[in-house]
């Protein structure tokens, strides 16, 4: 079976070192692939190249064996797309936006749209300009899913959604995956990708630096931990697997925990913990920690 997404030497050079360079990527059919990278890394550029919104400087990409450039129309018949920036539909009602875009290709599933709208509590009778940011995002999700596409290309899909609706979105995504859909999801939030993806590609400064399974991703995860305690200082924590850069002062401990959290938690048994705060650093910090010789973690933004 043809690969869901295949890119070979895909490049978009904007000049001044900006763009996407020499992307070689394969996403298998039925897979959920997370495309991770900090802001400006090239995630949206990649997606827009796949969608033939922009043209490559060199290289090529295909979706289910169809060339993204030469067979762009056929590609889009198979794709459900959620762009990173929301379109504006002014005075049109949500339902009218669905009807308008839904009629442009065959296979609109009105029942699915109604189901998504109910699950997200999205009133399709309201005018688009009256929607909050989150509701506009929900409508964009409904539009991406409404034709039951074989491939979902989603650019920052939970942007603007509250945690409850994020969870609802992950459930929705799991549902379509059970139906055999492939997912290509871009994000700058590690935990979002962890919820839904089998495999992750990490892009930085326009280059794909690594592809990894989730297990390897867990190994890359880093937390900055701040712990307040009473009694004896828990200096034994420095010996725990994954703990780095441990510092103690006046009933307060800070350290970095890399990878699995369980050993650290087990080692806390017997420690009189007053307060524990764990920060997930920004993805940029994860990359810096992963790729520098002397990793330094900063507090999350």
């Amino acid at each position: 079976m043809a690969k869901a997404v295949e890119a070979g030497g895909l490049t978009k050079d904007y000049g001044g070192g900006r763009g996407l360079f020499d992307l070689d990527l394969v996403v298998e059919a039925g897979e959920a692939f997370g495309y991770l990278g900090p802001n400006g890394a090239g995630k949206t550029t990649t997606i827009r190249l796949l969608m033939d919104m922009i043209r490559p400087t060199r290289g090529a990409a295909s979706v289910f064996g169809l060339d993204c450039r030469r067979q762009a129309t056929e590609v889009k018949q198979l794709v459900g797309y959620l762009p990173g920036e929301l379109a504006q539909f002014g005075a049109m009602r949500g339902g009218e936006v669905v009807a308008y875009l839904g009629a442009l290709k065959d296979g609109l599933d009105r029942r699915l749209v109604a189901d998504i709208a109910r699950r997200f509590d999205l009133d399709l009778g309201r005018r688009y300009r009256e929607y909050s940011r989150g509701n506009k995002q929900k409508l964009a999700i409904a539009i991406a899913f409404m034709h039951r596409p074989q491939l979902l290309i989603l650019d920052e899909p939970t942007s603007g959604l509250d945690p409850l609706n994020q969870q609802e979105f992950y459930r929705l995504l799991r549902g379509v995956r059970e139906d055999g859909a492939t997912v290509f999801l871009s994000s700058h939030v590690l935990s979002e990708v962890e919820h839904v993806c089998d495999r992750v590609g990490i892009i930085r400064a326009g280059r794909l630096v690594q592809t990894a399974g989730l297990r390897e991703l867990h190994h890359m995860r880093v937390h900055r931990v701040e712990l307040e305690f009473e009694g004896r200082p828990p200096t034994h924590l420095a010996e725990v697997e994954g703990v780095e850069d441990l510092r103690l002062e006046d009933g307060r401990l800070t350290c970095i925990v890399r990878g699995a959290f369980a050993p650290f938690m087990r080692a806390l048994a017997g420690v009189e913990v007053v307060n524990l705060v764990s920060h997930e650093p920004s993805l940029e910090d994860v990359f810096l920690a992963s790729y520098r010789e002397q990793p330094e973690l900063t507090a999350p933004a």
Partner: peptide, 18 residues
């Protein structure tokens, strides 16, 4: 009551007229 089902709208579904 909120509307969850998109309305039928011939005006929006026909080419050019949409």
């Amino acid at each position: 009551r909120p509307e969850y089902r998109p309305r039928d709208s011939a005006g929006l579904e026909l080419p050019v007229l949409a």
